[in-house]
Design a protein around this nucleic acid. Structure first.
Lengths: 123, 123
DNA sequence: TTTGTTGTCAACCCCTTGGTTGAATACCCT
DNA sequence: AGGGTATTCAACCAAGGGGTTGACAACAAA
């Protein structure tokens, strides 16, 4: 899994890591800070942070012994771009389909009854 | 990893699965159709489809021997909602930080030397 | 220089994942 | 019924992920 997009998606596939990201939107945190709420070892959280860092979602600077973790929210754009691209494409497909069906009806088979259509409904 | 959000992110963490999703935005496909471009076995692709189905990203209906795969684009919203929520929160944080720093300077400690501040810079 | 704090590295374990192959299912066609 | 097509199920394997514990590194404070 070499590409960044895969790494970002994989990083956010873990609830603990998503929670970490969520908390980092409020303020920067040290590793100890971040680890406190979870009942896993500090090392486990350290690993989670490494995953987030490799995905480009966070950066860590040095500040005495501490390693403040900082969220890089721009990486979110990578995902939203991908998602929105195909989301839009999927939506266009439906409109295109509608158009094709409509044309088929009044162009090719003008006698067919018009099919009713719902729009933008979510699951 | 029980929650759907995790399953969706995990499903899209694989390039092959993302490619499948991308192709499904154009039109529905059979499993054979979908498997053709990849040099893995049909069974492997079938597994990928199971992952996508469990995540709620696709549905499969029956049509003779074929199992046409259909994209359920609404699930994308689940991700975009999560992403946008924290993206916005992260952005608000920066504005809030600016405001707090400004107040600290002329309200709480009027004698402190004003710290220079950069604004809205990315990365 | 010792002690304490903060964090990472290394080795290990177990479970999941993505791949394989071979058999089974479901359906169409004759 | 029997053969062909489309797809899944089952068993297996190698690799990776998330967890653990123990040792180490970097720095502050004494």
């Amino acid at each position: 899994m070499t590409d960044q997009l895969s790494r970002v998606f994989a990083a956010l596939a873990d609830p603990t890591r998503r929670d970490i990201v969520a908390r980092l939107t409020e303020t920067d945190h040290t590793v100890n800070d971040l680890a406190a709420p979870y009942d896993v070892s500090l090392q486990a959280v350290s690993k989670h942070l490494k995953v987030l860092e490799d995905a480009g979602l966070v950066t860590r600077t040095r500040e005495a012994q501490r390693r403040p973790v900082h969220l890089e929210a721009e990486v979110f754009d990578l995902m939203t771009k991908w998602i929105e691209r195909y989301r839009r494409q999927a939506e266009e497909r439906f409109s295109r389909l509608d158009a094709v069906l409509a044309r088929m009806q009044d162009d090719d088979k003008p006698h067919t009854s018009p099919t009713t259509q719902q729009e933008g409904t979510a699951s």
